[in-house]
């Protein structure tokens, strides 16, 4: 059973005035079968955490560790992390002109599974996964994310998650920009992957509405680069009712 362990993670980005610390000591353990929700105000560093786990070159780890089943994730290249089982559904998926979705998916699946899927079963697998997310088959021939609406991009991210079957899935605001129907479809996709019990999910969100469809086991409040409170699903409801104010003030006076 996979376990992602984040210990005392400090991360900086290069800014005009020199390096700026965004993450200031994050501790978090995500195990296969668990769903963790991370909620926090804009700019608190949620995406930074997600990108740091995935290995985006913009972020510098200055202290701390990230391990997956004891393996040093921070020592891996971006593609090695993905092949090790880490998946990041991005808040802003990137457009890759000229590369068709089907070619991209097949190349990705081939890399992560370590062998090319048989062409015939693959076409069926892709079709089925697309149908499950109500993605028009025509998207297979379109360039990756190019001209996709916000909601289409998010569905395409979850399509990849379903095909790649990661051990740890980090979903960065996958719910934002989705209408109610799309939210339901996307949530069902995430739940399908989770049903096997082999994925640990880290769900970054601002809203509790997605938590109606994807039930978190743990809720973490993220303020100013660290986790400041933890609880069960009831914490999400409290946050929705009261906002982050009390946590932000506490963090500021700390």
């Amino acid at each position: 059973m996979a376990t992602l362990e984040i210990r005392d993670l400090h991360v900086t980005v290069e800014s005009d005035g020199g390096p700026r610390e965004i993450l200031r000591g994050v501790d978090l353990t995500v195990r296969a079968g668990e769903t963790h929700a991370i909620m926090g105000p804009n700019g608190s560093g949620k995406s930074t955490l997600a990108y740091s786990i995935a290995g985006h070159p913009k972020y510098t780890i200055t202290r701390g560790t990230v391990t997956l089943d004891g393996e040093d994730v921070l020592a891996m290249t971006v593609d090695e992390r993905a092949r090790a089982g880490i998946f990041l559904a991005m808040q802003y998926p990137v457009e890759v002109p000229g590369v068709s979705v089907s070619n991209f998916l097949r190349t990705s699946v081939t890399a992560v599974r370590g062998e090319a899927p048989k062409l015939r079963t693959w076409v069926k697998e892709m079709k089925t996964a697309m149908e499950g997310l109500s993605i028009d088959p025509k998207f297979a021939e379109r360039s990756v994310n190019e001209g996709f609406s916000g909601g289409e991009k998010k569905r395409h991210e979850i399509l990849q998650m379903e095909l790649l079957q990661p051990k740890i899935a980090v979903l960065d605001e996958t719910d934002s920009g989705l209408d109610v129907d799309a939210l339901k479809i996307v949530s069902e996709g995430v739940n399908r992957v989770a049903a096997a019990g082999t994925v640990g999910t880290l769900l970054i969100t601002h809203y509790t509405r997605i938590l109606r469809y994807i039930k978190p086991d743990f809720v973490h409040v993220f303020v100013d680069g660290r986790i400041v409170a933890e609880g069960g699903p009831e914490l999400a409801d409290a946050l929705e009712a009261e906002g982050y104010d009390v946590y932000v003030k506490a963090a500021a006076s700390a």
Binding site: A82, L88, P97, G98, N103, T107, A111
Partner: peptide, 29 residues
């Protein structure tokens, strides 16, 4: 750009394969 490369790499695709994918796609038309 680096963001495109990161996106492809984050799906397990090694950097050189990612470049090849992009170049192939670009010329395919």
């Amino acid at each position: 750009d680096d963001e495109q490369l990161f996106y492809l790499e984050s799906r397990g695709i090694p950097a050189d394969v990612a470049t090849r994918l992009v170049v192939r796609g670009f010329f395919a038309e």
